Amino acid sequence: MREAKEEACVDVEVGPLAFVYEYAPHLNLKKFGDTHTLVMMFECKRKEGSIPKLPPTPDPHQIGVKWLPIEELQNVQLYANMGNHIQEYIINRRNIDLLEEHKLGQ
């Protein structure tokens, strides 16, 4: 809830764990830096009446906030490259144990 509010000024209801993502610098030629990262991503639903927008002080690399149909996700470059995993989750509603950056492909 905090991240959605912080990054997109939107209120969400948090559901089940959808993904665990790991970035290990030594397995990825440090392409995203030196910090080993483990992220838990949850299925969330936007609360009725809550409209996503840029926060008053956005991340310096953040250029906008946009809600889009899941079918358009393939046209968006994501960090990490997991758009197809997100689409598969939406269709099958099954958890994926661990997504490792060095196994995601380009």
Results as ranks from 00 to 15, higher is better:
4 A>N: 08
6 E>Q: 01
9 C>H: 07
9 C>Q: 13
9 C>T: 11
12 V>E: 08
12 V>R: 05
12 V>G: 00
13 E>R: 14
13 E>L: 13
15 G>R: 01
15 G>D: 04
15 G>A: 06
16 P>F: 07
17 L>H: 05
18 A>T: 03
19 F>N: 02
22 E>H: 09
26 H>M: 07
27 L>D: 14
28 N>R: 03
28 N>E: 12
28 N>F: 03
29 L>I: 04
32 F>I: 06
35 T>A: 11
35 T>P: 03
38 L>F: 13
38 L>H: 03
39 V>A: 06
39 V>F: 09
41 M>Q: 05
42 F>I: 04
42 F>V: 03
42 F>G: 00
43 E>C: 01
44 C>K: 00
45 K>R: 13
48 E>R: 09
48 E>D: 13
49 G>D: 08
51 I>S: 10
53 K>V: 12
53 K>T: 10
53 K>A: 09
54 L>M: 15
55 P>E: 12
56 P>L: 15
57 T>V: 15
57 T>Y: 15
59 D>A: 08
60 P>R: 09
61 H>F: 15
62 Q>R: 02
64 G>R: 01
67 W>P: 08
69 P>Y: 08
69 P>M: 01
70 I>D: 05
70 I>W: 05
72 E>V: 01
73 L>K: 05
74 Q>W: 11
75 N>D: 11
75 N>L: 10
77 Q>D: 13
79 Y>L: 13
84 N>W: 14
84 N>S: 15
85 H>D: 10
87 Q>Y: 10
87 Q>G: 15
91 I>A: 12
94 R>A: 10
95 N>Y: 15
95 N>E: 02
96 I>D: 03
96 I>R: 01
99 L>H: 10
105 G>S: 02
106 Q>R: 14
